[in-house]
Amino acid sequence: MNLAVPKLQHHFEDLPKQAHAARLGMWLFLASEALFFSGLFTLYAAYRAHYPEIFREGVAHNDLVLGTVNTFILLTGSLFLSLALWALRAARRALSVLLTAATGLAGLVYLIIKATEWAHHMAEGIFPGGRGRFFVENPEPAWAIFYTSYYGLTGFHAIHVTVGVGILAWTAWWMHRERVGPAAAYKLAIVGLYWHFVDIVWLFLWPLFYLLRNPA
């Protein structure tokens, strides 16, 4: 089996150093991403403190089953990706490619379910910015604020999932085409860092929009 080794760029002394730099760069980028979402979470927290009752009712209005199924799908995908990394480090490239592709597929299923949920909401007349007949029947402004933050937070998360699916598809194809070996595993690990981060964001969105529904 031909195991391709990543090219050493001219300004690094050796491959481990280059891999270290790539990992560190991704962690720093994720720190930035975490702060990006923290702004949205702050919005949610502030408005939930303003309007606790309607936010609770709004969460109860969301589909707990679909939200929970999606959590399960994303976490399964992350498990696949961890196994893919293990497989690549053990020089089992075909298995690794398969598992990486499966992770991307899980992301795709997640997006389809998420889009179904949005479609349900829109069928009820719930659109961002408090537009639609739902808000005629429920004129309190807090309803509009709740659903606008819902679309905002889940929307920005979905953009990240979409980017992740693209990266996973490209990575699976690249591992297959370049016949990469364990030496390139650090690149898959970096993709994994990003993907797990996107998962973790969802692990916060899940309680905020599906679980916190009972009166205190």
Partner: peptide, 28 residues
């Protein structure tokens, strides 16, 4: 990134009338 996200929210308010920061519509 915090600036980035908050400015995007204002873009949404300005271009798509989200009203997230409009006191007349419950925003703060």
């Amino acid at each position: 990134p915090v600036l980035g996200i908050i400015l995007l929210m204002v873009v949404m308010d300005h271009s798509f009338d989200w009203g997230l920061f409009d006191p007349a519509r419950g925003g703060d």
